[in-house]
Design a protein around this nucleic acid. Structure first.
Length: 485
RNA sequence: GGCCCGUUGGUCAAGCGGCUAAGACACCGGCCUCUCACGCCGGUAACGCGAGUUCGAUUCUCGCACGGGUCACCA
């Protein structure tokens, strides 16, 4: 049988990392089995519906490459794929269950239910529907129906015995039927509840593997009973654990945690994000951990899924992102980095590509770039203590001497010859002549023309990038500062 | 609280009766080097507790503790 999986998000706003990971796993299972990945939008809750949220779902899934084979916009044989457009379907299925004796009309109003719940809680009993309407006679039902009393349809859970359902990860889980509530299938307004719509839709759409969050584990037995009541085949369940912010809290936008869009905005590569979240709650067979989506399809195996929650580690994400950045071709890197470089580098006489080349190995997230190159437009005022370096055996005094020796050497280089190699060779001639350590000259020069303790690239690279005139000017300014100290 | 699930270093995690208990990130050293970073080498650090079963338990069983989930006419 063909594998068919579905990702069924509610359009409630942004796409959070946990949802995206569920989508990923769902996609991987489908593709691993050469099957179909289906997108179904579950928008039955009009109150939580957020304008534009569907577009975010589309956009996110597309940018990470989780392309769906069937869905609202691409169509398919078992549509519609937007749940609100399927509303007509559910009533007949609920009534079919009533006819089979697997469900029943319930006329209890909300007041009675709230009161019942209050009483039960007060007496320490588990709040559950008391099955007041479960055994209404045919006459009573017809009478109330005729009188137009609002009703819901509830699932008739067996009063005794146990229900066992199977999860690919957790194995068989058995619960006493006495702990299961006669849940509502069809609401007063004729709309299905999520639990009911899900079962019906999954069946109608031929879903073979249901991948969903762990929060549904507890309601799984009731799903099983529903499938059984209909006489439908139960799909394979795979419940995945949550992604946590820390030991106690789930990762959520409400807590200010990063959503996928936030990560993109901060300069993460979508491939790196996908790679990282695949690893959050799943472990590949070998020791490799860098995978493209295609490779993940190959490697993925539900046996590698974890049964306990995983804490999202921004540092690890960064590290993986850094690895992806380093693997980029120089051209690709430049393409990504240029906008960030230009955030602080406004002057036009510099070669952005050269700056980018220095940055590639030093960038884990693109958003870190601007502050690394902020000295290029203008050298900041800096602390002369920067010249103090034990390992280089330099201090303000030696630095002044080094700079005064270096200045004429640099000035002697032709504007036209102002290239890394020439600058390098000339300064090394000086170093050889003076018989000093490289750092004795180079450290002060780098500081003198950058004003920073750390810079991407060393003295030669920086000098080349900012050009001869600027280099000389900065050297002079720094010499003055040292003299006037 | 009832029910369900889980518990290996700081984090992600391998392990599926016998191992010096992998690997990655982070951290700490070292090398490279004009800084930082990259790269390379090395190091610190873990089986929640208590009973069983077994010749032998991280691995199986049961308690306990802790953590999570769920108990809506939300999804």
């Amino acid at each position: 049988m063909e594998v068919r999986t579905r990702f069924a998000p509610s359009p409630t706003g942004y796409m959070h990392i946990g949802n995206l990971r569920t989508a990923l796993y769902t996609y991987l299972i489908a593709k691993k089995g050469n099957g179909k990945f289906i997108l179904r939008i579950e928008d039955t809750d009009q109150e939580r519906y957020v304008e534009g949220a569907v577009d975010i779902i589309y956009r996110t899934l597309r940018t990470v490459g989780l392309n769906w084979d069937e869905g609202p916009d691409v169509g398919g044989p078992v549509g519609p794929y937007i749940q609100s457009e399927r509303m007509g379907l559910f009533k007949q299925y609920a009534e079919e269950l009533v006819a089979k004796g697997e469900a029943y009309y319930c006329f209890c109003d909300k007041e009675r239910l709230t009161e019942l719940k209050a009483v039960q809680e007060a007496s320490g009993v588990n709040p559950m529907y008391d099955r007041h309407c479960r055994n209404l006679s045919k006459e009573e039902i017809d009478e109330k129906l005729a009188a137009g009393i609002p009703y819901v349809i509830r699932q008739k859970i067996p009063e005794t015995g146990t229900t066992t359902f199977h999860d690919e990860l957790y194995g068989d889980i058995t619960v006493d039927n006495s702990t299961l509530d006669d849940q509502i299938l069809l609401k007063t307004d004729g709309m299905p509840t999520y639990n009911f719509a899900n079962v019906v839709d999954d069946h109608l759409m031929g879903i073979t593997h249901v991948v969903r969050g762990n929060e549904y584990l507890a309601s799984a037995p009731k799903y099983n009973l529903l499938y059984k009541a209909f006489g439908w085949e139960v799909p394979t369940y795979i419940h995945v654990e949550h992604i946590m912010k820390d030991k106690h809290n789930k990762l959520s936008k409400r807590n200010g945690d990063a959503s996928f869009e936030d990560l993109m905005a901060k300069g993460y590569l979508s491939e790196a994000v996908i790679n990282y979240i695949a690893l959050l709650g799943w472990a590949p067979k070998g020791e490799r951990e860098i995978f493209t989506l295609e490779e993940l399809i190959e490697e993925f195996d539900i046996n590698g899924l974890s049964k306990s929650p995983a804490i999202f580690d921004p540092l690890k994400l960064k590290a993986i992102n850094g690895e992806y950045i380093r693997k980029l071709s120089p051209e690709k890197f430049l393409e990504h980095a240029a906008p960030y470089i230009k955030e602080t580098v406004k002057r036009e006489d510099v070669d952005i590509a050269k700056i980018a080349a220095l940055l590639q190995n030093r960038t884990e997230v693109f958003a870190d770039i601007p502050e690394q190159v902020d000295f290029i437009d203008e050298m900041p005022n800096y602390d002369l203590a920067l010249y103090e370096n034990k390992k280089m055996k330099t201090n303000a005094d030696t630095a002044l001497a080094a700079l005064e020796e270096s200045l004429p050497v640099l000035e002697a280089i032709d504007e036209a010859d102002w290239k890394f190699d020439n600058i390098h060779d000339k300064l090394f001639e000086l170093i050889a002549k003076l018989e000093v350590k490289n750092g004795y000259i180079l450290w002060p020069v780098r500081v003198a023309i950058s004003g920073k303790q750390f810079t991407p690239g060393g003295a030669f690279e920086i000098a080349e990038i900012i050009g001869k005139a600027d280099t000389i000017a900065r050297m002079k300014r720094s010499i003055e500062m040292l003299k006037n100290r």
